Amino acid sequence: MERNINFDKWKWVQINKNDLGTMWEQETTPSGWETTIRRNITNCVKVHGGIDGEMSVNGSLIYRQNVDEEEDRQIFHFYLTSQTLVTIDLEFTAMKQISAEMLLRQLDKCDNAVDGFLFLLGELVNDLLVEIDQFEESLQSLMWGVKKRNEMRTLEHVFTQRHELMICKNLLIPIQELKMAIEEMDFPNVNNGEIFTRTCKRIDRAQVLLREYEQELDTMIHLEEVISSHRGNEIMKTLTVLTTVFTPIMALGALWGMNFKNMPELKWQYGYLIALLLIITSTLLLYRYLKTKGWTGDLLKGKKRGSFFK
């Protein structure tokens, strides 16, 4: 349904997408805009002179996105002039950080529709900042989890967090573009106003946080790659050293395990003792040679408590 909100200085028209063409005067928007928004499911921003040369910004904005389901998203469409704001499918009552009553009171204080729209964008960014704060708590837990429980499950958690961060960044980028579009149009009494400045700083704050958390996650991913590579090398080195050290045992065991009729060693009185001494001596000599060459590395050294390379 359509809802007209007439503030003291400007007008806000709220429309449901299903009611397009019946509840809304189409001449208030550019030609063809109704057809465009019916099929648009992605972010887009357009700036132009509008009807009779009036400056306007219109487009679509995804403002909610489920991190688990690609199709589970909320998108609204807008048409903005200095005195009129038309929004389609914007659930402003779903904003978590401000009540609907307080939102309308604050919008009524705005001098024009552009300031009102900027205020709405600021509240959307505020909701996003709360999600980023929750992300920070999870990131702190993950940061210590990499050290305490360095396993595949931790790496999976790292990439899950990286995906969530990408979604938050994807929600913020079109808002940043909208801010730049409004700057480009240079609406009167807007670009230097208090609401514009506050919204810009809020967007910049969100961008800085996302960028820093992105770097932290990339560092964790790089750390996991280094640890995994080191572990793989240690495992291969351990297997190689063990195989080499026990080669004399396997070779001599295979030799004396044969069942040929003429084997002089079978008649030796001290053959068993000689065989044991030969096996032990050859094994120790081979291990000493490997250790002298430095090929055993940290194979027999204990790991420090809390080490990354357990």
Rank of each mutant, 00 (worst) to 15 (best):
D111C: 01
D111E: 13
D111Y: 08
N112W: 06
N112D: 05
A113L: 02
A113H: 01
D115W: 05
F117C: 08
L118A: 10
L118R: 08
L118D: 05
F119V: 04
F119R: 09
L120V: 02
L120I: 01
L120T: 02
L120Y: 00
L121C: 11
G122S: 08
E123R: 14
E123S: 11
L124R: 03
N126M: 11
N126F: 04
N126R: 13
N126W: 04
L128T: 08
L129V: 10
L129N: 08
E131W: 02
E131Q: 12
E131F: 04
D133Y: 12
F135I: 05
F135K: 04
E136M: 08
E136G: 05
E137A: 13
E137G: 08
S138I: 06
L139G: 04
Q140N: 12
S141I: 10
L142R: 12
M143S: 15
M143W: 09
M143V: 13
W144S: 15
W144H: 13
G145T: 09
G145V: 06
V146R: 11
K147N: 08
K147C: 05
K148N: 10
K148C: 05
K148E: 08
K148Y: 06
N150A: 13
M152T: 13
R153V: 12
R153Y: 07
T154H: 03
L155P: 01
L155Q: 13
E156H: 13
E156M: 12
H157Q: 06
F159I: 02
F159A: 01
T160K: 13
Q161Y: 01
R162I: 01
H163R: 15
E164Q: 07
L165V: 01
L165F: 01
M166K: 10
M166L: 15
C168K: 12
C168H: 15
L171K: 05
I173S: 12
I173E: 05
I173V: 14
I173G: 02
P174K: 07
I175H: 09
M180I: 01
M180G: 00
A181R: 04
A181F: 07
A181W: 03
A181D: 03
I182Y: 06
E183P: 00
E183D: 05
M185V: 11
M185D: 00
D186M: 05
D186Y: 02
F187D: 04
F187T: 06
P188R: 02
